[in-house]
């Protein structure tokens, strides 16, 4: 009986706070993406050959986002039947965009206009530990190109 109550409380907490955090995060991501749109990010390894002499610098952005209890339960049930894990998809999208944004913020602070060789790494911090609520890390890095004044 108490187990059910604890379970439902955790679910409700996860649902309300997780949803609120996600909405807020997406709003902030959209706002900051608009702000840093002039900084161009390329997966291309090198800048075009006709580029004027520039300085370059490694820039990176790193984010860790935790799954909430509700998302984890829904995903856990979904793994029994298969299909899109929609509750994790939005989580990873947030992490990717946030990591790129943090990288761009660093580039902007260094006075760069473009970033080349942008790469993303992802890692699950709680890998293999089924008892824990999982979290995911996304790391974005690249070479910021800073024009010489």
């Amino acid at each position: 009986m108490y187990d059910i109550l604890i379970f439902l409380t955790l679910m409700a907490l996860g649902f309300f706070f997780g949803r609120r955090a996600e909405k807020k995060h997406f709003k902030s991501i959209r706002r900051r993406e608009a702000k840093y749109r002039q900084i161009l990010a390329f997966s291309e390894r090198l800048p075009p050959p006709n580029t004027r002499p520039v300085e370059s610098q490694l820039v990176s952005g790193n984010v860790v986002i935790s799954v909430d209890y509700f998302k984890q339960i829904v995903a856990g049930l979904k793994t029994l039947v298969g299909g899109r894990l929609t509750s994790y998809e939005s989580l990873l999208e947030r992490a990717r965009r946030e990591a790129i944004l943090r990288m761009k913020e660093q580039a902007a602070a260094a006075g760069a206009e473009t970033i080349f060789n942008v790469k993303l790494e992802t890692a699950s911090i709680t890998k293999g530990n089924g008892q824990q609520v999982g979290c995911v890390e996304v790391f974005a890095y690249g070479t910021a190109i800073i024009p010489i004044a």
Binding site: F70, K71, T86, S87
Partner: peptide, 16 residues
């Protein structure tokens, strides 16, 4: 693209 339009509670209730 990655955010499903479906309400997460609906998915949970169907699954459960």
């Amino acid at each position: 693209i990655n955010v499903s339009e479906e309400h997460p509670l609906k998915e949970f209730i169907l699954l459960a």
